[in-house]
């Protein structure tokens, strides 16, 4: 986990190159559409990216500690968005909320986070813990099974029809134009999403850096056996990690519902892949990396949708992942791991 000075310089150089390339591209493309368009896309991308970042954190933490790709993570996020929708419907729906809106939104977040967190705990306990010492192919297939199970359970329980949060009817105050009526528009809902995402990430960093649990988590991810010998219960630490990561995914699910309005049982899979890409771009296992990766992936997707074509955007994101995997599997902020033989 300790990077040498040279590696860090290399990381920043890589990051700088990527940013410069993107800005150059934007400059190249902007005369046809204008700078406002570019900035608007960037704002949209940051909103999208802060959702991806929250998903990426869960992936990254779990990979960091277990070296396990939790394919089911995207579906935990989907369940989170359905829990949020359930709370919204029980409390009167977007058009006639039964309690003050601020309280309602807080309720949605709280219930969704706790619900998905518990779901994460259950998944870890029953699908992954029995396979802790199995060949590495086994938990991957088990994870695929969990993802499939969750997706279709949601289909069974909630039906295949799309649900609409109608978040803009809920939060009726609108947003602000920056730079005149034709300038960049930032909706208040977007501001809420970005700021709550940042708040959650700050809380997570604090948790990992300054609490006993954080210390234990870092110790387990560094060397599980040594940590166990020092009196840390790895099972408990791993379970808590799953809880925290899944709760973040649940929050991301509610945010997605609020901003993009429409949810259904399949939103988890692609979002999971994007979140995973974010984790890889940032450097899997690294928490600041996940945030950075989320924002980069979100902005790239938004730009690709704006300048190229809505359909190519997914391919661009997938291409970035494959490229990073082949050329720089440690991501921007990650550290290379040696394979122990």
């Amino acid at each position: 986990m300790i990077a040498t000075r040279q590696q860090r310089l290399g990381n920043f150089a890589g990051l700088g190159l990527v940013l410069v390339a993107w800005v150059l591209y934007a400059v190249y493309a902007s005369p046809t559409q204008g700078w406002t368009f570019f900035l608007q896309l960037t704002v949209n991308g940051i909103i999208l990216g802060s959702i991806y970042a929250l998903i990426a954190l869960g992936y990254s933490m779990v990979y960091g500690i277990l070296k396990l790709l939790n394919f089911a993570h995207g579906d935990v996020y989907m369940i989170g968005s359905f829990i949020g929708f359930g709370v919204l419907s029980v409390l009167g729906g977007a058009l006639s909320p039964a309690i003050p809106v601020v309280l309602l939104v807080l309720c949605m977040f709280a219930v969704a986070m706790i619900g998905s967190g518990v779901l994460g705990l259950v998944i870890e306990r029953f699908a992954y813990r029995p396979l802790r010492n199995a060949p590495r192919i086994a938990p991957l297939i088990s994870a695929l099974g969990v993802a499939f199970f969750l997706e279709n359970s949601a289909l069974l329980l909630f039906g295949a029809q799309y649900r609409n949060y109608d978040g803009y009817d809920l939060i009726s105050f609108n947003g602000i134009h920056i730079g005149g009526p034709t300038g960049v528009f930032v909706s208040y809902l977007g501001v809420i999403v970005i700021s709550s995402s940042v708040a959650l990430m700050v809380a997570l960093v604090a948790l990992v850096r300054w609490t006993r649990f954080g210390k234990a988590m870092r110790a387990v991810s560094f060397d599980r056996e040594a940590a166990a010998m020092m009196g840390i219960d790895p099972d408990r630490v791993i379970a808590t990690t799953f809880f925290v990561g899944s709760a973040l995914a649940g929050a991301a699910g509610v945010m997605f519902g609020l901003v993009y309005s429409q949810i259904y049982h399949l939103i988890g899979f692609i979002a999971g892949l994007k979140g995973f890409t974010a984790a890889v771009v940032g450097g899997i296992g690294s928490i600041p990396g996940a945030m950075l990766g989320g924002l980069l992936v979100g902005m790239t997707e938004s730009w690709a949708k704006g300048y190229l074509n809505g359909n190519v955007a997914d391919l661009v994101v997938f291409g970035i992942l494959i490229g990073f995997m082949l050329i720089r599997p440690t991501g921007l902020l990650g550290t290379p791991a040696l394979q122990k033989v």
Binding site: F126, A127, L131, A134, A138, P139, I141, S142, L144, G145, V146, A147, F148, F149, L150, E151, N152, S153, L155, L156
Partner: peptide, 12 residues
Amino acid sequence: YVLFGALLIVLM
């Protein structure tokens, strides 16, 4: 599909 998902988990 729910059953197949469960089958993969249980078999593993």
